[in-house]
Computed example of a mutant assay.
Amino acid sequence: MEDPTEVLFPTDCGLSLLAALDDDDAPGLNGINALDIGSGSGLYSVALLAAGAERVTALDINPASAAQTAANVRANGLDAARLTCVTSPLEEYTPDERFDLVVTNPPHLPYDPSYARGDGLETALVAHRGGRAVYDTVVDRMDTLLAPGGTLLMAHSSLADVPRTVTQLTARGYATETLAIFEMDIPLLAYAEHMETMLALLKERRATGRAEFDGSRFTVHALMFRRPLSADGR
């Protein structure tokens, strides 16, 4: 088995959302209390602290993520006292307070036993339910995690049914905006031995309208969801 403590290096998907943080319509970051779901190596946690976030909680199921995120915060000359690292499945995480901002880049590749590895790298890239497992959990948990008036920023792969997520959160009263759309390659080289299996799964999802891609190219949507301040949307 592969080393289960490995942490995924920032990918093009992750970097796309980082770029969107500079969008004119992106929320202000100074003084906020933020949650980084699936923090990995700490890409977003570092960026949020550097941009003036008062506190950042880095949440990841991989135990190696906490040490790597803290190390990267210190390496960038930032105050590690403003960082809290939590190792927990998202389903089981219950914070003491809700956050002003939630940032996440969920895994988006469909699961198959033939290429399942069970290590930290797989959990960062592959998800059950056709790649939607973490997206669905984020949607289910968002009212618990996000303060009224708060913002969810999500890097959403077109391989994992963008319209479904938008529809679900819009139905809850969240205002939705697309900050940017980035085109990139499906990371098939990482699964070269099982490329045909993965493409077959993706093509099945595309045939039912649950995935969009052209050849080996797909898109990542930098999405912003704003939770209403109250039940009547104000």
Rank of each mutant, 00 (worst) to 15 (best):
D3L: 07
T5W: 10
T5H: 11
E6C: 08
E6A: 12
E6V: 15
V7H: 03
P10A: 13
T11F: 04
D12V: 13
G14R: 06
G14Q: 11
L15M: 14
L17P: 10
L18D: 09
L21Q: 09
D22Q: 14
G28L: 11
N30V: 13
N30Y: 02
G31P: 10
G31N: 03
I32G: 04
A34W: 02
L35A: 02
L35M: 12
D36A: 05
D36T: 05
D36Q: 11
D36F: 05
I37G: 00
G38C: 06
G38Y: 00
G40M: 01
Y44L: 08
A47I: 07
L48Y: 02
L49M: 09
T57Q: 08
D60Q: 10
S65M: 04
S65C: 13
A67D: 14
A71Y: 07
N72H: 15
V73R: 00
R74M: 13
A75Q: 15
N76A: 12
G77V: 11
L78R: 05
D79K: 02
A80N: 05
L83F: 11
C85E: 11
L90M: 14
L90G: 08
L90K: 07
E91R: 12
Y93T: 04
P95F: 04
P95S: 10
E97H: 14
D100W: 02
L101I: 15
P106R: 01
P107Y: 02
P110H: 04
P113C: 08
S114N: 07
A116H: 15
G118A: 09
D119W: 04
L121T: 09
T123S: 15
T123N: 06
A124R: 00
A127I: 07
G130K: 02
R132V: 03
Y135T: 00
D136A: 13
T137L: 14
V139D: 06
V139Y: 03
V139W: 02
V139H: 08
D140A: 15
M142Q: 10
D143S: 10
L145D: 01
L146T: 01
A147G: 04
A147Y: 01
G149Q: 05
G150K: 00
G150R: 00
T151K: 05
L153F: 06
M154I: 15
A155M: 07
A155D: 06
H156T: 06
S157I: 08
S158A: 15
S158N: 05
S158W: 10
T165I: 15
T165D: 07
T167Q: 12
T167R: 14
R172C: 08
G173F: 06
G173Q: 08
T176V: 10
T178N: 05
F182R: 13
I186P: 01
L188C: 05
A190Y: 09
Y191K: 01
A192M: 04
E193K: 13
E196C: 00
E196S: 11
M198D: 08
M198S: 04
A200Y: 05
A200F: 04
A200R: 12
R205I: 01
T208M: 06
T208F: 02
F213L: 05
D214H: 13
R217F: 06
R217G: 01
R217K: 14
V220W: 03
M224Q: 15
F225Q: 10
S230A: 13
R234N: 12
